[in-house]
Design a protein around this nucleic acid. Structure first.
Lengths: 251, 251
DNA sequence: TCGAATTATGAACCTGATTCAAAAAATGAG
DNA sequence: CTCATTTTTTGAATCAGGTTCATAATTCGA
């Protein structure tokens, strides 16, 4: 059925168009301002057509996050393949999250929103599954790095599985970003955002895991150089993957 | 003006009534189902009266979170005052978060929702400030514990301020809970929720900070006993503070 | 007790998501 | 190529629920 294949391709292309435009509008005006009818019009389709792709507005938002998740996975895969110490790969993943937030602040906010009960529950089950399916290879990837470090004798297994161990740095990374993202919180604390702080904390954790080589976090020079280097490497991967991968408003 | 005082008191009481009922309805039916008109009716007031207290639905949600924040602060204060090692106090705070989520799952979900751009931006500035004001003493409290540990020689300062250091365990705690809260994520990872895991990770971090006394996380017996003990202590404080402090649906 | 000032009321309004009957387009058999 | 049938698109109508505001009720102080 070559006809159906063509139709399917067109349909997929239209879905990407909707998603692209939605991402653009969100980046420009914020999630709150995204409206279904204007979005459809901006894509030169009727409102009803939009609803042939997404069962609800929330479903559309999930679709955006799912797509971002794919990009994230590809980036993470390339990071995992870098020729750097295993320990640094974990840092590099953290750097990647950092950069992603810098380049796509609206994505980060969207993700926070989407995992909220209210939004999550209003999306279609299949779309939710899509996002969860993304997370499987992601966690496999991270725990793969941990596994490799254990096998290389750089990291004791602490009698935990690699997967369980891998949750620690991941939680720290998420938590750290979440706190920072929470509007006005750091300001309320009287805390200035020192971009190295996050990495100091990560090193403290990795040290605690006895992940070799340990790093003395008071050695700011070494730390700065390390993060600098990782940033450059990750940034390059980032731009190779998707040169236009940038929020219009935040360039 | 004794008349105005009385009025003010009545007004405050009514606000608490609205908040109580809202919390009840949310615990019963979820955030999504909370509607302004039914809430007002359930309190035997007109819709408009509700709007004399809260500038919007989002404002009401923030008010709920602010009130929870006060309770949390009081609990944390009592934990900080416990006669236990400083290091254990950090664990106890983590335990407290755990318990709070257990007893009030809807609060945790609400908090996640409220810090979302969409909700946050739709609340009144004064309500937002209220929440931020809560966070100041909270961070002072946590960094106070860190400070005390440093002063007691139990923790090197790593050339950071106590406040900066205190962010690490806090971020780990938040991140860990966030991950776990994210619907279906752990299941998608093929990870079983081991309630001790979170504390193992925290100990890894504290070990990395060289916070004495170090704990060997493979020593499950000691860890279990420690957390058990902290749970009991915290649970007691918890119930003393607010005996009825329980989500209707989740008892 | 009465007029002014304050507060409460809830039906009407408004925004924006969602639906669906009608129109248009695509398909494919003859 | 034509026409009946199926599929797809359309966008105005519907619907939900948050918010407002003219009116009614209440409180206040003289």
């Amino acid at each position: 059925m070559t006809v159906n294949e063509r139709k399917e391709r067109q349909r997929a292309a239209r879905e990407q168009l909707f998603l692209d435009k939605a991402a653009e509008l969100i980046a420009r005006d914020g999630i709150l301002q995204l409206q279904m009818a204007p979005l459809a019009k901006a894509c030169e389709y009727a409102t009803g057509t939009l609803y042939q792709h997404f069962s609800s507005k929330e479903d559309l938002l999930l679709a955006l996050v799912a797509r971002n998740g794919c990009n994230q996975l590809r980036l993470f895969e390339q990071i995992a393949a870098l020729a750097i110490p295993h320990r640094n790969k974990i840092l590099a993943l953290c750097v990647a999250e950092d950069l992603a937030r810098q380049y796509h602040p609206s994505h980060a906010r969207l993700e926070q929103y989407v995992f909220t009960e209210v939004v999550w529950e209003n999306a279609s089950a299949s779309r939710r599954q899509l996002i969860l399916d993304n997370s499987k290879p992601l966690s496999a990837l991270v725990s793969g790095i941990v596994r490799a470090a254990i096998d290389a004798g750089e990291l004791p297994d602490h009698q935990c599985s690699a997967l369980e161990l891998s949750i620690a740095p991941w939680a720290l990374c998420c938590g750290s970003h979440n706190l920072e993202q929470t509007a006005g919180l750091f300001e309320a604390f009287g805390l200035n955002k020192d971009s190295l702080q996050r990495y100091r904390h990560m090193h403290l954790l990795l040290n605690g895991m006895q992940w070799q080589p340990l790093l003395d976090i008071t050695d700011t020079a070494t730390l700065t150089a390390q993060i600098q280097d990782l940033k450059q490497r990750v940034e390059q991967l980032f731009h190779n993957l998707c040169p236009l991968n940038v929020d219009p408003l935040n360039v």
